[in-house]
Design a protein around this nucleic acid. Structure first.
Lengths: 188, 188
DNA sequence: AGGCATAGCGGAGGGCCCTCCGTTTCATTC
DNA sequence: GAATGAAACGGAGGGCCCTCCGCTATGCCT
């Protein structure tokens, strides 16, 4: 799509970057745990090279899932167009939870971002999407006014971390309800 | 107090255990991050010995804070005796959040426990304490009936993970309100 | 085409985690 | 006071993470 950072000019650099991403996509698709060392070796680059392209594990994961995350973000206006705000919020949360459970690796990332300061490049739009939902709900009186989207993101982080197996799905659904109810105004 | 596991009979074993705990208490009192290797060395014991006494980092941390955690659990009946259930719940959550922020290390532990299966020895009583609060609130109609205490514990986990610096305290307070509101029944 | 500055490479190195197993030390028994 | 079996020790080893820096290949410029 768009050359991510600024100008990765050199050919070899671009090639390496692509190869790393290809390998990583496969290696991380499972549980999300695979050694960076192994990925580098598989991609035929030194570990140093991998780290230069992606300074942290999160950066790599984020790059892999940038598309999917953007997809989630893009769902917000759609859902808001088709549903009242409260419903849209709930539906979106469900999509987020579901996505998160599939791509387990993203959990850690979002979480790290929410607390410390990860790059706003990925984090900002996500927060903005939440903000949009919260504002719509505040406007029609179903959600409390003045909610902080980052607070909500942190709460969502819990959903990411529930393993879907062994009744985790049900648990996620319950917690999602608790979260939404916490955001609602007292009178429906 | 009570010899924790079963019968650590041998003298040297007991001595080592104590020395490890003493060193660990100091080493981990700060940010909670110190290498186990270093702790072992300081305690004058091999790394293997440390691991035999405390199979995971969590086990060590838990043992260190067992007293404080018990203290938190003991607060539940006291708070319930002095306040209506909803207030008691809120007050207790505040104590929990405050404690967690101080002893940052416990966060990871509780969290690990909540999802996978850590020893019920520590985890169980904590959940039971929450259950007691939830039941009291359900009985007087201020909290939803049938809430799962483990769900609530997971949500509380978020509080643990907020760094108190840089407005984190305010954020924790806000999120705490969201959580409690999610647990309440719709009519006050 | 040939030179040259430099972006980019890659792996050694230091630190940590955790396991495994040969060796030591204790407590008990004779 | 040995002898002895088992509990406990301890550190080497394998794996991972991440940094640092001397070396290489690339792309521009002449």
């Amino acid at each position: 799509m768009n050359p991510p950072p600024a100008k990765p000019t050199r050919r070899d650099a671009l090639g390496n970057r692509e190869r790393i991403l290809t390998v990583a996509r496969v290696a991380l698709s499972g549980s999300g745990s695979a050694s960076l060392t192994a990925i580098a070796k598989q991609a035929g680059v030194g570990i140093g090279t991998l780290y230069r392209h992606f300074p942290t594990r999160e950066a790599l994961v984020m790059e892999l899932y940038r598309h999917d995350i953007q997809g989630l973000i893009d769902r917000v206006p759609v859902l808001l167009g088709e549903n009242p705000p409260l419903t849209a919020l709930r539906l979106w949360f469900e999509e987020v939870a579901h996505y998160g459970r599939l791509k387990f690796g993203v959990a850690e990332v979002i979480h790290a971002a929410a607390n410390g300061g990860l790059d706003d490049e990925y984090y900002g739009p996500f927060v903005a999407a939440i903000a949009r939902l919260l504002e719509a709900g505040a406007d029609d009186g179903t959600l409390k006014p003045g909610l902080d989207p980052e607070d909500v993101l942190l709460q969502l982080g819990v959903l990411w971390r529930i393993e879907p197996a062994r009744g985790g799905a049900a648990r996620a659904a319950r917690i999602l309800t608790l979260i939404v109810d916490g955001l609602r105004t007292r009178q429906s």
